[in-house]
Design a protein around this nucleic acid. Structure first.
Lengths: 233, 233
DNA sequence: TTTTATAAATGTATTAAATACATTTAATAT
DNA sequence: ATATTAAATGTATTTAATACATTTATAAAA
């Protein structure tokens, strides 16, 4: 639409436009979600996603990035639009539509003081509390989209540190899909993607034997993302 | 977000919120897109998607359905959110964000008088003219999403009449993906999905021999959609 | 009535990918 | 030296994807 053209231009009341961030994080064990307890009424004390109204001088995308940086200190984070929530009565306070946008971050990268200052906490996905408004729905939708995306792009990689082990990559995928995979087949399939470089180092934090560390071959990885893979698990 | 809670509540100017429909139609030969020539300035005479501002008393979803019904006379059409376009300067006339929503319709079902009254025309996808604003981008994005969706849901079926032949189903998929498929393998794969019922009738409009008509087994079809398939072509 | 023309329909062999499954290895701690 | 434990490895089987050529049903033309 071009604003001047609509028959409805003059009759549209102010509709507020917000964005809410579904922030997924991985700590090498499981996927978690960053939420916080609202401080002010209404809904004070209730769990909520972290969001903001879109400002006059920023895009919808940038609004979400701004919020994410405010809370976690991180920039250049992978973010993806999930969908728009535009029901008339979704917010009892005002007519307000929101754009769900999910982010994938490595929890270890966060600015922990900033996160704590905002009263934000990492919550396990399988025991999410009730969130305000339709926020549980936003989480559910973002998670389905994440799963879908993980099936045709090696997207989970955004959540891993620079160096990582194959068992931790497997835990990541198991956490996204909430199910177990056969370790032999998982390893075979990941290696067949041909985007990993094996290092000479081991991570001995989870076993005596230690697991070899790997990193991504960025060139191969980007080429793979571009052409689109079928990474069904 | 809950409106009352934002720090920014008082500082948010009016941002207009619109929706634009990417209306895909199939005429048993190829996929086409419904666009129209704007009548008023700015951009008078230029090709545009069909859209509207979201009204106070309607959801974003319903705004798109309203527009679609206004133009084509159709109700209960398959519609799907594509994405939000929220760049600050995307519309020179006003700060306006839009939600792209694509629809799949059978061209034969349209109310042709209504369509003509609005000056809307069906355009081939492979020779799209320049559209106003970022509308070419909306079309491109919706088309990628349609292709993606078609790969894990038998979504193309929304575009076919109640009774259809396997060759016309194949033309549909070839039109969506803009490439040819082997007719033996295509047929094998479609039949393996086990959602089609073969009828005793033939459609002889495209050959002397005639092609058998099929229809969907709605129960099996819904079950398949629900569990999600892998329909790679 | 025979012939011609044409899209529709069918089958098989080959290759590639997914799955199922059990043992050995490397290192630390006892 | 032994016990312990996660990491690493290989193979056989099943399933799905691909490549490819001929026959069939019918209407129209001769």
């Amino acid at each position: 639409m071009s604003a001047e053209q609509s028959n409805f231009y003059s009759t549209q009341d102010k509709i507020l436009i917000a964005t809410d961030c579904i922030i997924f994080g991985f700590d090498n064990q499981s996927i978690k979600l960053l939420i916080f307890k609202r401080i002010v009424d209404p809904f004070a004390g209730e769990w909520s996603l972290i969001g903001s109204f879109v400002q006059n001088n920023e895009s919808v995308t940038n609004a979400a990035k701004r919020v994410l940086t405010e809370i976690t200190g991180l920039e250049n984070v992978f973010m993806q639009q999930s969908q728009v929530y535009g029901a008339v009565e979704r917010d009892p306070g005002a007519r307000c539509i929101t754009v769900g946008q999910y982010a994938l971050i490595r929890i270890e990268d966060q600015d922990i003081e900033l996160v704590e200052k905002h009263g934000a906490v990492w919550h396990d996905l399988d025991e999410m509390p009730n969130l305000v408004l339709d926020h549980n729905q936003l989480v559910e939708d973002a998670l389905s989209q994440l799963r879908l995306k993980a099936s045709y792009q090696p997207i989970g990689f955004e959540l891993l540190p620079e160096k990582f082990t194959i068992p931790s990559l497997q835990r990541l995928y198991e956490s996204i899909y909430q199910k177990k995979f056969d370790d032999r087949n998982f390893r075979k399939k990941i290696i067949a993607l041909d985007v990993l470089t094996k290092l000479d180092e081991k991570d001995k934090s989870t076993s005596k034997k230690g697991a070899f560390l790997y990193k991504f071959n960025r060139r191969k990885y980007d080429r793979l993302v571009e052409k689109g893979i079928n990474f069904k698990l």
